[in-house]
Simulated scan of single mutants.
Amino acid sequence: MELDALTTDFTRRDWQHVTETDDPVRIAMIGVGWWTREQAMPAVAAADLCETTVLVSGDAAKAESVGADSPTVERGITYEQFHDGEASDAYDAVYVVTPNAEHLPFVETAAELGKAVLCEKPMEATVERAERMVATCDAHDVPLMVAYRMHTEPAVRRARDLIRDGYVGDPVFVHGNMTEPILELVPDADQWRLDWDLSGGCAAMDIGIYSLNTARFLLDADPTAVYGTAHSVAPEFDDVPDEHAAFQVAFPDHVTAMCTASQNAHLASHIRVTGTAGELRVEPAFYPWDERRLHVAHGESDLTIDFDGIDQMEEEFEYFAHCLLTDTEPHADGDHGLVDIRTLKGVYEASETGAAVEL
């Protein structure tokens, strides 16, 4: 097939066969920070298969105030009221977007109430707490999906199709990068990302996970070993070991991924797969406000495919709701998320010991 043909015959939502419903999935959003207000709630408001009906916050007045601007929100409740089961008849699923180390108790309560769970990545701050999350959802037979936006990003899905179709030959290397000046984007030196107890890690856990997980998605494979280095230089990062992180991930069939992440560097992101017969690169890749471009090189030809801007969060919520409405297991379930946590914790161990960590 000529490269020009790659711009055709692609369905953005190849996972979808339900496009409308009279009974949308009702979602309680747990955590009402800027991401919920500016990204998640507008995405759900634009979606066809779900709606926001409950807001849960540490501040009841804040939850009620934010909810007042939404025609679908029925209740604003506190964290304590959520754990007590209040308003549980007003939602079918929860979206957990608190700091990493606070995910578990909300997921446990949701599971006990029989509610499906969409949990932000990384799943938790430690492997043990993430494992408890999976075990609890399994015990109560409730769906658990981890919120990986790249899985429903059309440019990334197209890249995966092309890899499967052999356009790069046999994959050899993956290079991924995500960097940002976090204190410019969120100008608060006391933010939870810079608190080890709340975050479980800084650059690797918060944004290095994008390169790692997208590599897994593109290759349809899981890591076998990881080696990494991490260091912090600026005083604002004294509580975390990884202002900057770089790690090498071994995959089956002699494929290696090289991932870099920084919370104190120029804003940039890309992921590239190089194979024996070609190369694919998505750049920009990971920030939701960028319009994606897929660069394809095969033989002596190369092509850049521009993708229309889509709301990544809307795609993610629609996919989650679609899975619930069709009783389909989401691709990024709890076991999938555990692989990332174990791998990223391996980065910190390798940085301390200087040795690769088998997974």
Rank of each mutant, 00 (worst) to 15 (best):
residue 211 S to P: 02
residue 211 S to E: 04
residue 211 S to F: 03
residue 213 N to E: 10
residue 213 N to D: 07
residue 216 R to A: 03
residue 218 L to E: 14
residue 219 L to A: 08
residue 219 L to P: 04
residue 220 D to F: 00
residue 221 A to D: 15
residue 221 A to R: 02
residue 222 D to I: 03
residue 222 D to W: 00
residue 222 D to G: 06
residue 223 P to T: 15
residue 224 T to P: 09
residue 225 A to V: 10
residue 226 V to T: 14
residue 227 Y to M: 07
residue 228 G to D: 12
residue 228 G to N: 11
residue 228 G to I: 02
residue 229 T to S: 09
residue 229 T to P: 02
residue 230 A to D: 03
residue 231 H to Q: 12
residue 231 H to N: 09
residue 231 H to I: 05
residue 232 S to C: 10
residue 232 S to E: 05
residue 233 V to I: 13
residue 233 V to M: 10
residue 234 A to R: 07
residue 239 D to K: 10
residue 239 D to S: 10
residue 239 D to A: 13
residue 242 D to M: 01
residue 242 D to C: 05
residue 244 H to Y: 09
residue 244 H to W: 08
residue 246 A to D: 05
residue 246 A to Y: 01
residue 248 Q to L: 05
residue 248 Q to N: 07
residue 249 V to W: 01
residue 250 A to R: 04
residue 251 F to S: 02
residue 251 F to M: 08
residue 251 F to N: 01
residue 253 D to K: 05
residue 254 H to E: 14
residue 255 V to L: 08
residue 255 V to Q: 00
residue 256 T to E: 12
residue 257 A to R: 05
residue 257 A to F: 05
residue 258 M to G: 08
residue 259 C to Q: 02
residue 259 C to K: 00
residue 259 C to S: 07
residue 259 C to F: 03
residue 260 T to P: 00
residue 261 A to Q: 07
residue 262 S to D: 15
residue 263 Q to Y: 09
residue 263 Q to I: 15
residue 264 N to Q: 14
residue 264 N to S: 11
residue 264 N to E: 13
residue 264 N to C: 03
residue 269 S to M: 04
residue 270 H to K: 07
residue 272 R to Y: 04
residue 274 T to R: 11
residue 275 G to V: 14
residue 276 T to Y: 04
residue 277 A to H: 06
residue 277 A to E: 15
residue 277 A to D: 13
residue 278 G to I: 00
residue 278 G to T: 00
residue 279 E to G: 13
residue 279 E to F: 09
